[in-house]
Amino acid sequence: MNHDAYPDYYLADILRETKTIALVGASPKPERPSYRVMAFLLRKGYRVIPVNPGHAGGTILDQPVVARLADIGEPIDMVDVFRAASALPALVDEILALPALPKVIWGQLSVRDDAAAAKAEAAGIKVVMDRCPAIEYPRLVG
């Protein structure tokens, strides 16, 4: 996949088919982009599971927070990444160790690592990087 430009249908299909999202790097602070994007996704009807070891056991936007992806007790469709791009390779390794792989890894704005993406894609996972679903959803889905 060319990660410099995505066809609209590719992003739209992902956004339409996704139901459950693990949001890695979720923040309980309303001023943080991850909080605002999580609120947007919840309003659009997605099930969003916040992942943040520093807030595990608490809640963000009334959703229980887990420490890591392996703590999620259900299949997830997408992992939405609000971490530094340098964290993506280790996160892909964590994702590949899950018993059920997600269909998509979505790296937020500025989150891009082509080698990590290639590794995920080799395992059959779609990858989007340097995009925000809260920007793409209104543009492509409505």
Rank of each mutant, 00 (worst) to 15 (best):
R36D: 13
K29G: 12
R43M: 14
R47F: 07
I76C: 07
I72L: 02
A70M: 12
R139P: 04
P64N: 02
K119Q: 06
E17A: 14
T18Q: 09
V37H: 10
L91S: 05
A22Q: 06
F82C: 01
P89T: 05
T59C: 13
K44D: 13
H3V: 04
G142F: 01
M1G: 12
D77Y: 10
N52Y: 06
D4K: 15
H3W: 08
A90P: 06
K119N: 03
L42W: 09
A22Y: 05
L96A: 00
Y35Q: 07
V104L: 14
M38N: 05
P28K: 15
G45K: 05
L109C: 11
I72K: 00
M1S: 14
Q108V: 01
L88P: 02
V92S: 02
D62R: 07
A26V: 06
A22R: 04
L88S: 04
V65A: 01
A39C: 12
A5W: 14
V111D: 06
L96W: 01
Q63E: 08
T59I: 11
A118L: 10
G124E: 11
E136V: 05
V79N: 03
I125E: 07
P33S: 09
V66P: 09
A123E: 02
E17I: 04
G107Y: 08
V66L: 11
R32F: 11
D4N: 15
L15M: 12
T59P: 05
A100K: 14
E121H: 10
A22G: 07
L98I: 03
I21P: 07
A118V: 00
I76P: 03
A12H: 02
T20L: 14
V92D: 03
K103S: 14
A97T: 08
V104P: 06
I49G: 00
I72F: 06
Y137R: 12
I135M: 15
V66G: 05
P102F: 09
L61Y: 02
P64M: 00
R36T: 11
H55G: 08
P50D: 05
H3S: 06
D114M: 10
R47Q: 13
V92L: 03
Q63K: 02
P133A: 07
E74R: 01
V81A: 04
A120H: 04
R16C: 13
I135H: 09
P7A: 13
V127C: 08
R47L: 13
Q108C: 08
D8K: 12
V111T: 05
G25H: 03
V81I: 06
L61C: 00
I135R: 11
F82Q: 01
A84F: 15
G107P: 06
F82W: 04
D80H: 15
A12M: 03
A26S: 13
S110C: 13
E121N: 11
V65Q: 00
A120S: 05
G58I: 04
S27D: 04
G142V: 07
A22N: 09
G107F: 03
D77N: 09
A118Q: 13
Y137P: 10
I95D: 00
V141A: 10
P53T: 03
P89D: 09
A39T: 10
S86F: 15
I49T: 00
Y6I: 04
V104K: 11
A67E: 07
V81M: 05
V65M: 02
V24H: 06
D8N: 12
L15R: 03
P30M: 04
I125R: 03
V127M: 10
V24W: 07
A100H: 14
